[in-house]
């Protein structure tokens, strides 16, 4: 497959995974506007922006969010608009859809008509929407629909896409993005770096995260009804059966990389394989006995970033003189 086409497919996977991730967080956050206390809402906005390493609009300094109900609601509209429709925000849902569609436009010949139509329709729907429109009704449903759109796209891919390298790179992009976003989110949360009022309980931060990841049922099955932060973190990192866990993403990533043919840049390809193996080993063997979980999460985050770099070097942006020739 053409290296640039493979890269486009990889980025389609990444952008759509990012879209789904953000929609899940925003869905929970906006749902919380109905009845949750201001401190929880403030925490939720902090968490979203911090793990994306983005600065919220109008936040001239740290902790500008106030704790007055009225002001928080006003901020919620602005922040939701920024994270949903702001073209200047590279993490906004609009940007993610536009980028994934732009990549798909370049490889329409490599994906099925169903995949293209599904993505194009979602793109048109987001393009034609405004926050003012969706805010009047049940805004969280907008995000539920978008998650469904993303899942429809990947469902279409799974039933219509030939299982060649294109499929592998699409899935690889999806799992790498999954890994990077979630490990950053967990690292932010476990660092206690987000300020809370002194009277605040921390239970809700894990409850909302389990909600966003649709992992409440799995948690109850494993640990019972009381939410404990340590247990929730452990499950979201190392439970291999949970589709939103880091271990799940790491395992799928490793499978995809090993399924690929030898990389044109063999050195980077081998490095990618070693990093992928190291990630598995970290979560499998070192995580359970780790005392410093934040440090472990930061290490996983760092390795995930390096893995992305090595994949790009190995298969997409390799130097011509390093590449083997085929006749």
């Amino acid at each position: 497959m053409l290296a640039r086409s493979a890269e486009c497919l990889y980025w389609i996977g990444r952008y759509l995974e990012r879209t789904e991730h953000l929609c899940q967080l925003l869905g929970v956050q906006i749902g919380a506007l109905i009845d949750r206390p201001v401190r929880e809402l403030t925490f939720g906005w902090h968490r979203i922006y911090k793990h994306l390493q983005e600065t919220p609009p109008s936040a001239g300094q740290e902790d500008e969010f106030t704790f007055s109900e009225d002001e928080t609601l006003a901020d919620a509209f602005t922040l939701t608009d920024d994270l949903t429709f702001e073209a200047g925000n590279k993490y906004s849902i609009w940007s993610c859809f536009a980028q994934s569609r732009e990549n798909a436009r370049q490889v329409r010949h490599c994906i099925s008509e169903d995949m293209w139509s599904s993505l194009n329709l979602s793109y048109l729907r987001v393009r034609n929407a405004t926050l003012a429109d969706i805010w009047q009704d049940e805004p969280e449903l907008f995000y539920v629909d978008l998650v469904r759109d993303v899942n429809t796209f990947f469902g279409m891919a799974s039933v219509s896409m030939y299982r060649d390298e294109g499929w592998d790179f699409l899935q690889l992009g999806k799992t790498i993005e999954h890994l990077q976003l979630r490990v950053n989110l967990l690292a932010i949360q476990s660092q206690d770096s987000i300020p809370l009022p002194s009277d605040g309980s921390r239970d809700f931060e894990w409850t909302s995260l389990l909600n966003a990841y649709r992992a409440n049922g799995a948690y109850q099955q494993n640990y019972g009804i009381d939410i404990n932060g340590e247990d929730a973190l452990d499950m979201l990192v190392s439970n291999a059966d949970l589709p939103n866990s880091l271990m799940y993403a790491i395992t799928r990533t490793d499978e995809r990389i090993r399924a690929l043919d030898l990389a044109p840049d063999a050195k980077s390809g081998e490095s990618a394989l070693r990093i992928s193996g190291r990630l598995k080993s970290l979560v499998d063997h070192e995580w359970p006995d780790s005392d410093d979980r934040t440090r472990m999460l930061l290490l996983i985050s760092n390795l995930a970033d390096r893995l992305h770099g090595q994949i790009a070097e190995a298969w997409f942006n390799y130097r011509n003189e390093n590449a083997a020739r085929q006749f």
């Binding site: 497959m1 053409l2 790179f169 990389a263 044109p264 083997a324 020739r325 085929q326």
Partner: peptide, 15 residues
Amino acid sequence: NDGFVYMRTTGGLKK
């Protein structure tokens, strides 16, 4: 390269 045209693929340079 050497008077032949190759495209950059994920498997290397293909004529």
